[in-house]
Design a protein around this nucleic acid. Structure first.
Length: 412
RNA sequence: CGGGGACUGGCUCAAUUGGCUAGAGCGCUCGCUUUGGGAGCGAGAGGUUCCGGGUUCAAGUCCCGGGUCCCCGACCA
C-alpha cells in the first residue's frame, strides 16, 4: 500500500490522556483511536495486526479440533436466569438493555450460557462428544475503571473456546492440549520466552485453581511468582504454602514479577450443563451432564502486550508474524521511478509492503518508519541507486546492508 | 465506587493576583527553496476556552451544579 493513501497519519506527540505505552505508541502511529475510556477503534494498520493475531489463534484452535462459530451480541435473559447469573450482584459488569417490546436482553459479556443452551439442540448422545467450539466475538464489560490503554477495555474482541466432554479424563486431555496450543500462540506472536502458564483463582466462573497465561512485563497489572526453569508461575492471589505444594513449586526458586494476563483456561465442570440441561445418554442409557471447560484470549490485550514488551524510544518493533506489513519501502530519491518499479516487483512476489512515496523530508520518513515498526526497511536513495542497490535494515537494529535491486526479493 | 489531578484550534501547550481583538509550536492550505534522521522563508485557514447557571463594568481566569478524561485504590476477565 502506498503510504500517501493511508488515511491515518503519524502524530509527533501522543495525546495527553494516554499514559500507557501501548496506547501512546499505537495512537501516535495511527493503529487505534480512542472513542471513550476503554473503547478503541482499530484503524487500518491496527486492524492488520489484529487480523494476523486472529489468524494465528484460528490456526492453533483448528489444529486441536476447534470449530469456529459466531454467536450473538444480544443475549436472551432467560438463559442467564437458569444459572442465576442475570443477577447484578453476581455479575455486576454487565451491560443490559431492553427490546422495543420491553423484554430484557443482555449485551455479550461472555458466552457460557448461550452456547451451552445452543448445544442442547444438537447434543444428546455420548457419541456426539467431545465438541470444541470457539469464536472471535466482541465482549462488553462495564468495568468500573478502564485502564492501561487497550489492555483493559470495556469493549474488546475475544477468542473464547468452550469444550464439551463426556468424561473427566477426556476433558483433562483436551485441557492440556489447549494449554499447549496457547503456548504455541504466544510463541508465534513473539511472547514465547516471557509468557508463563500460571496457577490462579477462577473468578466468578469456578472454584479451585485454574490456569492463566501471564506475559512478564513491568507494565503488567498482576503479580506472579515465576519458576523460570519449570516455565511455571503462580499468581499472587493464590500464593499459599498449600498451593505451592500442590504445584510442586519451590519457594526459593520463585521470582516475583509483574505480568499481563494474556489468556486463561479453566474447568467449568458441570455447573452450566446441569443448570441448562445439557446432558447426554451414556452407554447404559443414563443421562449424564456434560463436562465443560472455557478458554479465552483477548486479542486487543495480546496486541497491547506485544507493544509493551517490544518497543524502543523511537516506536514499536513488530514481530514478523503479526507486523502490519513485512516491508517498509522508503524512497528518498528525487527520481521516484526506480522505487515505483521495486514496489511493483515486491507486490508481484506477494510481499506485504508499505511504500512511502510521500514528498516529505527523509528524516520525517525515517521517524515515521521507526514508529510504525515494520520489521524490514528497504531504502531507495540516489546514493544506493548509483550502484543499482537498495539499503535494507531490520527494525530495532542499526546494521544496514546494501543489496542489489535484482537480488532484493531473494534477500528478504 | 472512594481519593487525587486535568479539560483552551486536529495534537501539545501559553494567556500577569479578573482587563484590550484568546497566543505559540506541531499539523493543515498556497507559493518558493530544500531532501540520508522529524528542513527553511513568506502568505493563509482554523476557537461555543467541556456543558449549564451565577457574581462582575468586565470571566479562559472567581462561585455553584453537571460531564468527560487520566492516575492510585477497591473491583475485574
Amino acid at each position: 500500500m502506498k503510504q500517501s493513501q493511508l488515511f491515518t497519519k503519524v502524530l509527533k506527540q501522543a495525546p495527553k490522556d494516554e499514559v500507557a505505552t501501548n496506547a501512546r505508541l499505537l495512537t501516535r502511529a495511527g493503529f487505534i483511536h480512542k472513542v471513550m475510556a476503554g473503547v478503541y477503534e482499530y484503524l487500518p494498520l491496527g486492524l492488520m495486526v489484529l487480523k494476523k493475531i486472529e489468524q494465528i489463534i484460528r490456526e492453533e484452535m483448528n489444529a486441536i479440533g476447534g470449530q469456529e462459530v459466531l454467536m450473538t451480541t444480544l443475549q436472551d435473559k432467560e438463559v442467564w436466569g437458569k444459572t442465576n447469573r442475570w443477577d447484578d450482584k453476581l455479575v455486576d459488569n454487565w451491560f443490559k438493555t431492553k427490546l422495543a417490546n420491553g423484554s430484557d436482553v443482555g449485551i455479550a459479556n461472555t458466552h457460557e450460557e448461550p452456547l451451552t443452551f445452543l448445544l442442547t439442540h444438537y447434543v444428546s448422545s455420548y457419541k456426539d462428544l467431545p465438541i470444541y467450539i470457539y469464536q472471535f466475538q466482541t465482549k462488553f464489560r462495564n468495568e468500573l475503571r478502564a485502564k492501561s490503554g487497550i489492555l483493559r477495555g470495556r469493549e474488546f474482541l475475544m477468542k473464547d473456546l468452550y469444550s464439551f466432554s463426556k468424561t473427566q479424563k477426556e476433558f483433562r486431555e483436551f485441557y492440556e492440549l489447549c494449554a499447549g496450543a496457547y503456548l504455541k500462540i504466544f510463541e508465534r506472536v513473539g511472547l514465547g520466552d516471557r509468557t508463563f502458564r500460571t496457577a490462579a483463582a477462577g473468578g466468578s466462573f469456578t472454584t479451585g485453581l485454574t490456569d492463566e497465561f501471564q506475559t512478564v512485563t513491568d507494565s503488567g497489572e498482576d503479580v506472579i511468582y515465576v519458576d523460570e526453569k519449570k516455565k511455571l508461575a503462580i499468581n499472587k492471589e493464590v500464593y499459599t504454602e498449600e498451593n505451592l505444594k500442590k504445584l510442586g513449586l519451590d519457594k526459593t526458586k520463585l521470582k516475583e514479577k509483574k505480568a499481563i494476563e494474556v489468556g486463561n483456561i479453566f474447568p467449568l465442570g458441570t455447573k452450566y450443563s446441569q443448570a441448562l440441561g445439557l446432558t447426554v445418554k451414556d452407554e447404559t442409557g443414563r443421562e449424564q451432564p456434560v463436562i465443560m471447560g472455557s478458554y479465552g484470549i483477548g486479542l486487543g490485550r495480546l496486541m497491547g502486550a506485544v507493544v509493551e514488551v517490544s518497543h524502543d524510544e523511537q516506536g514499536m518493533i513488530w514481530p514478523k508474524a503479526i507486523a502490519p506489513f513485512d516491508i517498509h519501502l522508503i524512497n528518498i530519491s528525487k527520481n521516484q521511478t526506480p522505487a515505483d518499479k521495486i514496489y511493483k516487483a515486491l507486490l508481484e512476489t506477494n510481499t506485504q509492503v508499505l511504500y512511502d512515496e510521500r514528498e516529505v523530508s527523509a528524516g520525517s520518513k525515517f521517524a515515521d518508519s521507526d514508529l510504525i515498526g515494520i520489521p524490514t526497511r528497504v531504502l531507495v536513495s540516489d546514493k544506493t541507486l548509483q550502484s543499482d542497490s537498495v539499503e535494507t535494515k531490520q527494525r530495532g537494529s542499526d546494521k544496514t546492508k546494501l543489496v542489489k535491486i535484482k537480488d532484493l526479493s531473494e534477500s528478504l
